[in-house]
Simulated scan of single mutants.
Amino acid sequence: MMISCIRSYTVLAAVFATLLSTAAAAAATAPRAWLVSKGNTQAVLVGESHVGTPVENDHYFETVVKPSYAVAEVAVMETYFGPDQLRNGSFALGAPCFDDPKGLHTQRLHLAFDALIKATRDSHLDVPNWLESWALVPEYLTLTLLDTFTTASLGPAYDVSETGISFRLRGKGTTSKKTIGLDTLGDRRTHFCSASAVDRADFVADKALQVSRLLRLKQSDPLYGSLGKLAVVAGEVTDEKVRCVDRPTPCAIDPVSPGDRILQDKGLETNYSSGTFEIMIKQRTHAWVPLIAKTISEHHRTFVIVGALHLPDLRVGTRVEPGLISLLRQQGFSVTRICGASDISATFLSPSWFDRVRSALGSL
């Protein structure tokens, strides 16, 4: 079903587009949070892009997202890695899959690593031994080495440019707030190793292509000054993904939108081959549901934030894969879109009994 605030948004967007006003365009961004409830427990579920975008630092962020994070007892974040997420890291990062498919190297995988090696040389960087001999390295170890190589090659300027709202909330929020990460290093290895050999090969190829594009981006723009314009595109892409929630016809994961293509070409977004969708989206979304449901059930107010692509149902070829919102509804939760702070002023944002006592004590 379509939510009423989306119908209102569509009408307003048409009017604002006619006015061709930058300010109006900023106001026309889609609501990006949902109220999840069951019994007397509630959560605010937010979809983000993982990079800083204009639509994620707007009036909606200030009046819905940030206040919800502030009053929540616990935050559940896709991007958080605390001690529980890092446990047994050496094994999780370095151990090959038990059935590592020796010799299964598709043409696409070869082309992807050829592109990465060329981009490395063109960037006047040394090609590591593991990259020269990637076909001999277990696939999961290759992914770990790619992550390390990416961080070292792109430098701190790239890290600064890639600050999404999860990081901004943690940086400016209450440092004592309990935070739960949705993925552990072991989880990531499990998701990869449980996929088919073909899907693994596609996933590794997508990663290698993404790193090669990021190196090309650094060649043309060493200080990443162009990312400001790309952030605008990322914001539009985020809006489109959250609009996919509750559409009568689920959005297709492929072909990608023009905005997605721009971000993929620059390395800010990965390709969504069958393997990447299986490992990064489908498996992880399903694995998160028990942890999210358990956390919401154990706390009066919970804040949950994940990548926007995990929220809607998505069409993959001829099949439809349920997103996080549908999966939570299947668990008996009510999930409704939050159009603005007024939607949750008397519920999630309403001061709790503890808040009132603390406020009274503070005024004495």
Rank of each mutant, 00 (worst) to 15 (best):
D260I: 11
F354P: 00
L182D: 12
L215S: 15
S350C: 09
F203Q: 05
D114F: 05
Q283L: 04
P67C: 15
L364E: 03
D84E: 10
E236S: 13
S226M: 01
G332E: 07
G235R: 04
Y158R: 09
D100V: 07
D260M: 07
V242N: 06
A23R: 06
V232G: 02
C97D: 01
A23S: 14
S123V: 11
T276C: 01
I253Y: 00
L109G: 01
I296Y: 12
A28Q: 15
S359Y: 09
F303T: 11
L268S: 10
C5L: 02
G82I: 06
H286N: 03
S273H: 12
V64D: 00
P101R: 04
T285A: 07
L209S: 14
V237D: 02
E78C: 10
K118F: 01
I117Q: 12
I344Y: 06
H124Q: 14
P258S: 14
T238R: 13
A119D: 03
A308K: 03
L185T: 08
I180Y: 08
L86W: 04
E73Q: 14
A231W: 04
G82D: 06
Y158M: 11
C97Y: 02
R315I: 05
P96I: 11
V242W: 05
D206R: 02
A205K: 01
P83G: 03
V232Q: 05
H105W: 13
L309M: 13
V36S: 05
V357I: 10
T79K: 03
V211M: 07
E56Y: 05
P138M: 00
S194N: 09
A308D: 07
S226R: 03
A70F: 04
T151S: 15
V36Y: 12
S359P: 01
I180D: 10
I253Q: 01
